[in-house]
Amino acid sequence: MAENILVVGGGPAGLHSAVTLADIGANVSLVERDSFLGGNPKKFKYKFLFPDMQPADDVIGELIKRAEKNDGVKIYYSSNVSNFKENEKKFDVTIKSPDASETKTFDSVIVATGFEHFDPARDAKYSYQLFDDVIDIKDLERMMGENNFVRPSNGQPPKNVAFILCVGSRDRHVGNQYCSRVCCTVSVKQAIELRERFPDCDAYIFYMDIRTYGFFEDLYWKAMEEHDVQIVKGRIAEITSGPNNTVICKGEDTLLRGPFEIPFDMVVLASGMEGGPQSSEMVDKLGLELNEHGFLKPQNVTLAPFKSNRKGIFLAGACTGPKAISDSIVEGGAAAMDAYIYAVKNK
């Protein structure tokens, strides 16, 4: 009899692990809270993915297609895990769908519940949702995706745009001390897209450190050298309204010393990633542990990064920490391996 494996979460990590497991012969149940697959990239309509500007549909769409077409994957849309019980190294799980409730026994479980975008409205200094022209990277991604990139306040193309890094990251004040890893790269990518679309529009990036790690650095160089994106060192402490329907960024130029108050047509906040309420939900229902940053805690970050504190439950993707889509997909495959081994050993 084939192994029964439960995958919680239908984002990049969950989709890839589900398909991988089905391909090696397991029966996979994929539980997704939304009425569609694809996770945050799909929900917020990411358009192009770094580092190679691949259309997101080619990546996420492909993952979804593979999962939907695979007979070994049973997908539960708009569902959640309502009851979870360990039973002699196996797990009795009740999956609650809108129209039915089903209890099954699984040999192992993969948790791939992902992350939530930090809500910049929680940090009042950025005046998000107060001024129409202050948006964040997920809003910009959506606007670019819908091919509708204009100033929200008046529908005109902007003349200068500021990108502010580390919003909701590396800030004790909002409770997130960690670096969200991808926002720098996303911001330089968006600055490039912006300059390509509007060559007359200046793009400035306000940074403390630019962390386009590894080969993502290529994008950062490209933004400066080919698209004249200007980087300015200093974090923005306040966003206020300015003359002629502008928003003023107030900060310090830490390289020259001295404050500045510069009016911009638009401000894009590079909001970071958070574990979200779904991480705590998994803690309550599955008995997992959170780390000090609000993400799910692996048994050993170096040696067993995909194992949770409970035997038979595995972790993949951004639920264990901020991650790029490519990393999440890799982790989906790796966690699938761990989950399969556990299932086979305990049959």
Binding site: D202, Y204, Q230, V232, G258, F260, P263
Partner: peptide, 8 residues
């Protein structure tokens, strides 16, 4: 001492 604009 506030710098009121960047002149590109």
């Amino acid at each position: 001492r506030v710098n009121p604009k960047f002149d590109r």
